[in-house]
Design a protein around this nucleic acid. Structure first.
Length: 455
RNA sequence: GGCACGAUGGCGAAGUGGUAACGCGACGGUCUGCAAAACCGUUAUGCACGGGUUCGAUUCCCGUUCGUGCCUCCA
């Protein structure tokens, strides 16, 4: 049994897919204008964990994650600076559709790289916004036919939130402040109205209303419904999406179709650094390669995230990451020393299922891993089999043993040290040990002889 | 300013109306020629502060303080 915290109802609800077998799930994906930082990546580790949990308990999962590869290549008072525009300027690319395409390809590739190094299962469909312009136009047209839109000349097509009595049903709306209201309403009919299409005389796509670019929310509505149907099971995203993006998505989709867009809405909390959110403007936007440079592997990062609940903020520090890294390496090494051939421990697995089924309590699941390791009543091969089974949910590649490549000269030093130790020439042995250390390896003396660990 | 949310040991972080998981670190031990590693053990009389409800609160309620997020795009 799986219960999930649904932002719509603000409580945990028992989940099962509408059709009883296949979960149709949509995850808000990245805007590919820059390398994802580790905070962004938390959202994808979360959606991946969700997918793995749903599979583990026996559902099929059809997962769709969008790639936002379009901006509107202009800045205006309603939007702040367009992210794609920002990216183009930063990389010295031309402000054009071609430039945008190049930028998007560059960062889509890096995003795929990040997903794979985090052992995130590739979503079944990763649609790009620019490949779905007709679908977006079609959705706007449906809204127009039903009278939910208005056009502002030389600006765009807008969604009229005053026509939707249910607008904001996901919550998170904050009262309109007087100052903002007066600044914004100079051109929009209502302060919460949002663009469905932005005009641009010089570039963009043709549409019934004029050349331009799709608005900032329409792509998710168009693509989720195309691949998952007009009504699907789960929609996820970062907690920041609740007030604007997801309320807008709901308004667009549900007013066009007359059906609820998603039954469950799930949102992950932020990762903070020094109790502060991650933002490029603060200069704390670490990426995966930044972690790797400090010796923290992507999977150690994943392990660390799993020690916190997805709806709790987690606070980054190098100390915390180093601790997680040590724990993760220890865990793998213990498992690799356990014999194979065991079978799943049913009692422990029942606990595991109840933890992950309780709104994805990965911290408890992880503590259970350590519990079973320390449990003297469980056979070693059973521990191994059980933990590796759980790894389908944890996604930590606990079965991977890294082969250490030992250079020839180090092998030679090792051999000499072995001889020195056998003849009890401790000074020689110790100096050989420090020589090996200079070459980047730590020597461990185990009952089975010398072992090397990369520093 | 408005609206939310949060405050648990040196660090990260679970959790519960009945007396605080797990990991890292630290300390002690076993092992070792010495180390390292590994393994074993110990490690919050306490869950921001002040009240209240209760037989009993870290857990519920009220207030205070502090912090963060949102109110422009943002995982």
């Amino acid at each position: 049994m799986v219960s999930l915290f649904n932002t719509l109802s603000k409580k945990k609800e028992i989940f099962s897919p509408e059709d009883g077998t296949t979960v149709r799930m949509y995850n808000c994906g990245p805007t590919v204008y820059d390398r994802a930082h580790i905070g962004n990546l938390r959202a994808y580790i979360f959606s991946d964990t969700l997918r793995r949990v749903l599979s583990y308990v026996g559902f099929n999962v059809l997962q769709v994650m969008n790639i936002t590869d379009v901006g509107h290549l202009s800045s205006d008072q309603d939007s702040g600076e367009d992210k794609m525009t920002k990216g183009l300027k930063r990389e010295g690319l031309p402000l054009s559709l071609e430039g945008m395409k190049e930028l998007a390809e560059r960062y889509t590739l890096l995003f795929e790289e990040d997903l794979s190094s985090l052992n995130i299962i590739h979503p079944d469909v990763m649609p790009r916004a620019t490949d779905h312009i007709p679908e977006q136009i079609d959705l706007i047209r449906r809204l127009e036919e039903k009278g939910f839109t208005y056009v502002i000349a030389n600006d765009g097509v807008y969604f009229d939130t005053s026509k939707d009595p249910n607008y904001g049903r996901l919550g998170g709306l904050t009262p309109i402040s007087e100052a903002r209201d007066s600044a914004v309403s100079s051109f929009k009919h209502g302060p919460r109205d949002f663009a469905l299409w932005k005009f641009n005389k010089n570039m963009g796509w043709e549409s019934p209303w004029g050349k331009g670019f799709p608005g900032w929310h329409i792509e998710c509505s168009a693509m989720s419904m195309k691949y998952l149907g007009e009504s699907f099971d789960i929609h996820t995203g970062g907690i920041d999406h609740i007030p604007v993006h997801h309320n807008n998505e709901i308004a667009q989709s549900e007013n066009a179709t007359g059906k609820p867009l998603a039954r469950f809405w799930l949102h992950n909390a932020f990762l903070t650094i020094n109790e502060e959110k991650i933002a490029k403007s603060i200069g704390n936007a670490l990426t995966l390669p930044n972690l790797t440079k400090q010796g923290i592997t992507p999977l150690s990062y994943r392990y660390w995230l799993l020690t916190a609940h997805y709806r709790s903020p987690i606070n980054f520090s190098w100390k915390a990451l180093a601790g997680a890294h040590t724990a993760y390496e220890k865990l793998k090494s213990r498992i690799s020393n356990m014999p194979t051939g065991g079978s799943l421990d049913i009692a422990y697995d029942a606990k595991f299922r109840s933890y992950i089924g309780d709104d994805l309590n990965t911290p408890k699941a992880l503590s259970l891993v350590w519990d079973i390791i320390h449990d003297e009543d469980v056979a070693e091969e059973v521990k191994r089999a059980t933990i590796l089974d759980w790894d389908a949910v944890l996604g930590l590649q606990l079965n991977e043993t890294k082969d250490v490549n030992i250079p020839e000269d180090v092998k030679e030093l090792l051999h000499r040290r072995k001889l020195a130790r056998e003849s009890k020439h401790w000074d020689t042995a110790d100096s050989l040990r420090s020589e090996i250390e200079k070459k980047g390896f730590l020597v461990k003396d185990t009952p089975e002889g010398q072992k090397l660990v990369k520093k």
